[in-house]
Amino acid sequence: MFITGVVGVLTRRNAIIIFMCIELMLNSVNLTFVAFSSYLGNEAGQMFVFFVMAVAAAEAAVGLAIVIALFRNRQTVNINEVNVLKW
């Protein structure tokens, strides 16, 4: 599932879909955290999942705000057309 997310980030050209792929990767890491925490009998993994979710929520809010600002300026969310930072 993590690999699917990586493939998605690398291949898709739509900024919003790239965001969703990042969420996918975070979730796959969360799943391994919970699995290890459950099999090792250690609650630290579940605490970490809690914080990962908080960071993911913050990241989604800021990222979507960036997408909206981008769309307002450029009328596109295709990252191939957003190359201001390119040399």
Binding site: I16, N27, N30, S37, V49, M53
Partner: peptide, 24 residues
């Protein structure tokens, strides 16, 4: 057996974050 994480997953991810994404 991670009930708390499961509930938070539904509430935060499937609820809040995806509603935000769909709204955008």
């Amino acid at each position: 057996h991670a009930q708390f994480v499961a509930i938070i997953q539904i509430l935060v991810y499937a609820g809040a974050i995806m509603v935000l994404v769909l709204f955008v």
